[in-house]
Design a protein around this nucleic acid. Sequence first.
DNA 1: GTGTACATGTAATCCGTTACATGATTCC
DNA 2: GGAATCATGTAACGGATTACATGTACAC
Lengths: 185, 185
Amino acid sequence: MTDPAELPTTAWAVLGMLSHAEELSGYDLKKWADWSLQFFYWSPSFSQIYAELKRLEKHGYATSRAVRSADGVRGKRMYAITAAGRAAATHWVNHAPVEAPVLKHSVMLRAWLGHLAAPQRLRDMLAQHIDYAETMRRRAEADADGAAANPDWAYPGAVLRWCVRHYESERDLARDLMAELDTLS
Amino acid sequence: MTDPAELPTTAWAVLGMLSHAEELSGYDLKKWADWSLQFFYWSPSFSQIYAELKRLEKHGYATSRAVRSADGVRGKRMYAITAAGRAAATHWVNHAPVEAPVLKHSVMLRAWLGHLAAPQRLRDMLAQHIDYAETMRRRAEADADGAAANPDWAYPGAVLRWCVRHYESERDLARDLMAELDTLS
DNA sequence: GTGTACATGTAATCCGTTACATGATTCC
DNA sequence: GGAATCATGTAACGGATTACATGTACAC
């Protein structure tokens, strides 16, 4: 087996999604990314997904076929992972160096600049962040429940439970920080 | 006051660092970013910092002066925030829309693809991640202790305590996940 | 008939990194 | 003398986004 090509992580994420399914369109992948990858990675834009799909196909990691609807007009293209693609993805998971986790927390960046901020602004920002974390937690929980039904989703399910706890913690830590900032101003 | 220019978050982060200090060189800023921003945002490369400094100066948000060492040979350039820069940064903190937090967790991405992974690989990855989180926690704690001494660092101090709890949680959640994965394979 | 979802793709642009280039200073 | 740190910057490149362009299907 030749060494798998050097590809950006996004490509492996897309290929990884394909490895969980039979056949998906670019549109499907975007929708699915919004509801799964989104929790712990990030959801690439449509244009990025279409570009990665072409690249994956060029490398022989995916195949596609054009599909027309019953009325024969509307076209779409369905992608599936190939054996070579599965091998490459497996190799990537098992052997590629693991990139450091990236955290870009613009709420904390603003709190770090609290000496420039109006106290109420910091409270509002944190309140909004608490809502965001709670929404994400709920969504992840619903997804985790969905995954629990199917043994094929054991790993995604475990990761989704990690996400539930992660957003729970995110919510609680924001509450703590809000309380702490209230004692400052 | 004219509206502050549209700048990437990195520019505001650099300007924010300048707002915490008297005068800093690009090199100083990079070193400082590695030990503060790094915990909750990310540390731009040297070249990025130098580029942002030039842009900030162009906008009148920072000034610089060349400094030569006692022997008169070695040169460096020290940057300071201007009044306009402080006003712009304040406006950004108080009024710019807050970007959604970005999380790109490549460890979780690989766990999500656990059906492709060797069980031992997942254990190793998580063990390494636990070490990473613990190291970050310790570093953040040391920094938070340092900040506690000075009332000027109240906000950075509060954020650093948030970081300590965040990395603590990150460590614990990775342990939980490792235990859960062990029951799967 | 209007808005929403389905469906794909191009072009322009920007953010940011890596590699490269250069050279002084300080500590061992 | 050699390594690590201080110190700045350019050039090439790539990853990714936004805006734009286009059109169908379906529900209300």
